[in-house]
């Protein structure tokens, strides 16, 4: 079973939930348990899990390099590039690697065969273990603009569908293409929402992207609840979203998080409801 944890708003507790689900599943005997940190711009699940990272590779996208001698400035590559990563100024073809999506169309289509692909490094992928949990993360290099290819590469490298196991995808915040890339292929998406006007607003955007646009199975976990969840519960009811769990806002939990300690360390009682949540998702899958 593959479960993505996403949110819309940042700081609602995606990583807290993903790490806690991984730990709870491993303790309940689920095997294998894998956690992929796909928040490539700021991966921080490793701070809670403290894994040993044994494997490391850089990843990028293939970007075009134009042979000035062969190029006859027909302009075909510029017309075909939907990312606008190429411009033909008549005397040379300019390439903008930060706009390129690495689709390879220009290279394949060039009538003069004047284009070859060179690697444009975007960041690093790392993998290892934290006890029983297989862990991997993507890290975008500073100044780079495209996290989605790194997310795709990490999933291709380490995501395995297993009928008995559990793979957790810790998505970036927001509702943009990198979130959609992170959640793609998930059997379920848990949206972690905080009961504030900001949390509610961004929850709506995430539902729009992941359920309405992508057709994924989406349900909600409310975090940082202080018992005034009316607005968010109403939203979930009106939009046919199951609320699977409500986690409280408590100073002690926040303090532990700030020290890089997991939720289950300070609230071992949360383990049972987390396992129950996973069972709900599995049951739903078997019924479907």
């Amino acid at each position: 079973m593959i479960v993505a944890v996403a949110s819309g708003k940042g700081g609602t507790g995606k990583t807290t939930l993903a790490v806690s689900l991984a730990l709870a599943a491993a303790r309940a005997g689920v095997e294998p348990v894998t956690l992929l940190d796909l928040d490539a711009e700021a991966p921080n699940a490793a701070l809670l899990l403290d894994p040993v990272l044994e494997e490391r590779r850089t990843t990028g996208i293939p970007v075009p390099e134009v042979d000035a001698v062969r190029c006859d400035h027909c302009g075909e590559c510029v017309r075909l590039c939907r990312a606008h990563a190429l411009a033909d100024i008549g005397t040379s073809v300019l390439v903008f690697p930060d706009l390129c999506i690495g689709c390879g169309v220009c290279t394949a289509w060039c009538p003069q065969r004047a284009i070859r692909e060179v690697d444009h490094v975007l960041g690093t992928l790392e993998a290892g273990r934290a006890g029983p949990i297989a862990f991997a993360q993507a890290q975008l290099d500073p100044g780079r603009a495209q996290p989605a290819p790194l997310i795709r590469a990490l999933k291709a490298w380490k995501m395995r569908a297993s009928p008995t196991g559990l793979t957790l995808l810790d998505a970036p915040p927001g509702a943009s293409c990198s979130v959609m890339e992170a959640a793609r292929g998930a059997d379920h998406v848990l949206l972690v929402a905080e009961p504030s006007v900001f949390g509610l607003h961004d929850l709506g955007k995430a539902v729009g992207a992941l359920r309405d646009a992508m057709g994924l199975d989406v349900s909600v976990v409310i975090n940082q609840s202080v018992g005034r969840d009316d607005a968010i519960l109403r939203f979930c009811e009106e939009n046919a979203l199951a609320v699977r769990l409500v986690l409280p806002f408590e100073r002690e939990i926040a303090a532990a998080y700030a020290e890089g300690r997991s939720l289950l360390e300070v609230r071992p009682a949360c383990e049972a409801p987390l396992v129950e949540l996973l069972l709900q998702l599995r049951t739903k899958e078997q019924l479907a």
Partner: peptide
């Protein structure tokens, strides 16, 4: 390219060229 999210500047520049 007025409404696209990324690459509008390069596209518009090419249009003018």
């Amino acid at each position: 390219g007025a409404g696209i999210t990324s690459g509008s500047g390069v596209g518009a520049a090419q249009l003018l060229l």
